[in-house]
Design a protein around this nucleic acid. Structure first.
Length: 272
DNA sequence: CGGCAGGCGGTTA
DNA sequence: TAACCGCCTGCC
């Protein structure tokens, strides 16, 4: 059963920008609108003239409002980072509707383990496969079978051999070990704690900080960001430390937002 | 066929 | 602590 939620007076929202800036893997265009699963609910999203419309199997306005980070003033954020770094203005204008979602911590942690040394279409495929095999079946919604992201227990108790059938490669053991650590310790709260997971290094840890824990000062440096920092500022692509220090100094507490605008710009506009 | 894709762990010097 | 190397898999 589908309910419709409409939220009005929303600025700085563009589904394309939100879902194509590298933060999530379970939202895809179906018949012209984005459909995805979050918090165990299926939703179809549309936005026009300040009105956000969600056709969903569950979750109240409060849940979705928080998920889409609607309480945050992105115009103010853009002004702030542009004032600190005018060179970012074009990227902010191109990706004007970006928002950093408030995603589930465990889902984010596992998803970014899957992302390592991998490309986006295959990451999405792998995660859907994990959901189909280990997640709760949510029914047929908008013409497709839908599945929730698995619980911590479901993945902690999964066998590495069975996961291997999902073509996850060497990431299988990371996934099971991480789910077990998460079950034992609870959700991580610091960078060092995230880094202590087997199979999580600096890049993935920063993604989990930013996208899972909403630590908007985190600045994940992947190969794209390396290209960007090289192109914009002349950094050697090996100088990850230099880039990280520069980002903190240049963008400060909003480095994560800056990363998203730049990533989106280079990924979807400049290099296409 | 080698190279690479939103890296990481392990081993070397 | 920096520089390599191998790695599951799929697609050029």
């Amino acid at each position: 059963m589908i309910q419709t939620i409409t939220i009005t007076g929303i600025k700085d929202f563009e589904a394309d920008h939100i879902f194509e800036c590298g933060q999530c893997f379970r939202w895809n265009v179906e018949d012209g609108k984005y459909v995805g699963v979050a918090g165990g609910y299926v939703a179809r999203v549309s936005y026009e003239d300040g009105i956000l419309t969600l056709e969903t199997t569950g979750g109240d306005e409060k849940f979705w409002s928080h998920y889409f980070d609607l309480e945050t003033d992105y115009s103010a954020i853009k002004s702030d980072i542009i004032s600190k770094e005018p060179k970012i203005e074009k990227a902010c204008n191109e990706g004007y509707g970006i928002r950093i979602l408030n995603q589930d911590k465990f889902e984010t942690l596992i998803s970014f383990i899957v992302s390592q040394n991998n490309n986006i279409p295959r990451i999405k495929k792998c995660i859907e496969s994990i959901c189909e095999h280990y997640g709760e079946y949510l029914g047929e919604v908008f013409g497709k079978k839908r599945y929730a992201f698995p619980t911590v227990d479901a993945l902690a108790d999964a066998s590495i051999c069975d996961l291997a059938d999902l073509k996850l490669g060497y990431r299988c053991e990371y996934i099971v070990a991480s789910a077990q650590q998460y079950r034992k310790e609870g959700a991580p709260t610091t960078y060092d704690q995230i880094l202590s997971y087997h199979g999580i290094g600096p890049k993935v840890a920063n993604c989990i900080l930013l996208f899972g824990l909403h630590r908007v000062d985190a600045f994940p440096i992947d190969t794209w960001v390396k290209h960007i920092m090289n192109d914009m500022y002349g950094f050697s692509e090996k100088d990850v430390k230099g880039m990280a220090a520069f980002a903190t100094e240049k963008y400060g507490q909003y480095a994560g937002y800056a990363q998203q605008y730049l990533f989106h710009y280079y990924r979807n506009v400049k290099f296409t």
